[in-house]
Design a protein around this nucleic acid. Sequence first.
DNA 1: ATGGCTTGAGTGTCAAGA
Length: 255
Amino acid sequence: MRVTTWNVNSLKVRLPQVLEWLKLHQPDALCLQETKLEDAKFPAAELQAVGYQSLYCGQKTYNGVAILTRQSGTGMLAEVPGYSDPQKRVLAANVGELRIVCLYVPNGQSLDSDKYRYKLEWLAAVTAWLKQEIAMHPRLVVVGDFNVAPDDRDVHDPKAWEGQVLVSAPERAAFQNLIGVGMKDAFRLFEQPERSYSWWDYRMNAFRRKMGMRIDHILVSEALAKSCRSCSIDIEPRKSERPSDHTPVSAELDV
DNA sequence: ATGGCTTGAGTGTCAAGA
């Protein structure tokens, strides 16, 4: 099984690229964030035409998550039980032997923002829920835009970013806490190129200058880690016309 | 220099992203 995560920053704008990418790479599951679409406007027919079924949970303008699969997903859950949140950021489903959780972690804006407090509270709620998920589903894959660069090597200029949102100590601790439910960062199970990032700012030619961050992640449960064959970032879509600022991250699992 | 692009909403120009 191959599982991919991609923050598309508007599925309406990025649909042609998503269709093209699906035809080229044929993952078993493609998890999307920032679809920015109400459910009534989700392009399920266009995706069906290239062989993918859609599970989605969206809203107008902001947020929105989806899981596209070749075989149908079951056991869909679109919110953290007991944590009511009008922002559509969570989607879980069983796909084949896997339980897949797709997350769009709040950005946080800045350390003194209410959005930052929301980010930490949200991560704590999700972590508590994932403890239950992994107990019920040992073959758990948690993917998405985490809006946290776990380590300084995930940041193009750690000095400039020190203490900022995406890298601050409380965010990194929250990320480690989430990992602590029994997950591994699939990307770091393997040798990787220097300066591997999944997001580059649209401004200042950040992509060309390799000024990025690794904030999109695939976490695999410890039970799955030994069957993980690879994890890689595909920077090709970031080179296209009207790219998303994020690029796909994929993992291959022997299941 | 709190900008720099991009998107959505909506038709002005601003919020939000990261």
